[in-house]
């Protein structure tokens, strides 16, 4: 369920970064206010645990396939929602950096999808509520299962929204939703059961771990609830504005840049154009290679929405130019390599 950089637009990525940073800042504040410095090593080591535990295959009876541990809810239950959220963020950061699993721009999306819904929605609304009157094995099972399911459903829906608003894929909203939600229902069922089994075991072996977290008034008190609602509203607002923005202009950032710096840039291009045309008259090695069909095609293309590849003439030169660009990039790399090797052989430090 990790979002990749290639699938999101800067507007969506930025909005989710902002939302995630907001929640993280709030969580950090909360932990610091509680003066619970003991939490920090706990979060660090538990993050490493979840990272490693995600590699364990739990086989699903009667299917021959296997599922994994989720992480978000487990961390919320063992460490509390704020610490759980921050820990999830660390795990995702390391996955993004070391394994390119979810990108850096999409980092905000991923932390939100995998951390926020589990720690700040499913945990307080379902888990906390169901275990309000103390833990028992049955309650733990129901609470873990339902919370994981809800968290994952919300996360999956969030992925759909982010993808659709980013407009990089052609997947229609309805199709995507119909694809994502049922798949994540199945995944959530397994994740939920595994999480439930693990939480139940920890509760039986060492009940004080769960009870200490449950004692935290964090989410019971009004002030935090207020903060949370405020955050949610902010997120919805930011998300809403950005997505309107994004849907009106598939690439919102580009639009903003044009607004601010558009004219200057166009002039520069014109000048560059003139210089280049001068150079090319001397250097063009395919001077006649231009499809004369450009006029007629331009007319037919103009009828449609702005479609960058206008005619065969420019597109051929575009492909050629693209090829040359890649070639130039490769040559630059090779040259640097060669220079480096030569210098090394000559005994230079590089």
């Amino acid at each position: 369920m990790h979002m990749a950089d290639a699938l999101i637009s800067p507007a969506v990525g930025g909005a989710m970064w902002a939302a995630t940073s907001g929640v993280a800042a709030y969580s950090m504040k909360k932990i610091q206010v509680d003066l619970d410095e003991k939490k920090i090593p706990m979060m660090g080591v538990m993050g490493a645990f979840v990272f490693a535990a995600q590699m364990i295959n739990f086989s699903i009876p009667g299917t021959g396939s296997s599922g994994h541990i989720g992480g978000g809810l487990l961390l919320a239950v063992l460490l509390g929602p704020q610490a759980g959220f921050l820990t999830m963020a660390s795990i995702l950061a390391i996955q993004a950096l070391f394994f390119a699993d979810g990108g850096l721009l999409a980092f905000g999306c991923n932390v939100f999808n995998l951390g926020f819904y589990t720690c700040f929605i499913a945990y307080p609304l379902i888990y906390k509520r169901l275990t309000r009157n103390g833990h028992s094995e049955k309650r733990i099972f129901a609470a873990s299962l339902l919370s994981t399911l809800l968290g994952l459903q919300l996360g999956a829906f969030s992925v759909v929204l982010q993808t659709v608003f980013s407009g990089k894929t052609e997947l229609p909203f309805g199709t995507f939703v119909m694809l994502m939600q049922p798949i994540h229902l199945a995944i959530g069922l397994v994740e939920g059961l595994v999480t439930a089994a693990v939480v139940a075991f920890v509760w039986k072996a060492s009940p004080d771990i769960l009870e200490n977290v449950a004692k935290e008034k964090a989410l019971g008190s009004i002030s935090t609830r207020k903060v949370l609602t405020g955050l949610l509203i902010a997120v919805l607002l930011v998300g809403g504005v950005f997505s309107w923005f994004a849907s009106a202009n598939p690439d919102g950032l580009e639009w903003a840049m044009l607004k601010t710096a558009g004219t200057a840039e166009l002039e520069a291009t014109n000048k560059l154009h003139a210089v280049l045309s001068d150079i090319q008259s001397k250097t063009a090695f395919l001077p006649d290679y231009s499809f004369k069909a450009s006029d007629s095609e331009e007319a037919s293309a103009a009828g449609e929405e702005a479609w960058p590849v206008v005619n065969a003439g420019t597109s051929v030169s575009g492909i050629l130019g693209g090829g040359l660009t890649l070639l130039a990039a490769a040559l630059t790399g090779l040259t640097i390599n060669m220079i480096k090797k030569r210098r090394k052989r000559a005994g230079f430090e590089c």
């Binding site: 660090g44 080591v45 295959n57 089994a197 075991f201 920890v202 072996a205």
Partner: peptide
């Protein structure tokens, strides 16, 4: 192929308990 459902809780749960102990030592 994977961990049998009967061991789901104990396998990962033991690890959590040990991880908690380790975190306490680190602290």
């Amino acid at each position: 192929k994977g961990i049998h459902w009967k061991s789901w809780g104990s396998l990962a749960g033991q690890l959590i308990l040990r991880t908690f102990e380790r975190a306490q030592s680190v602290y």
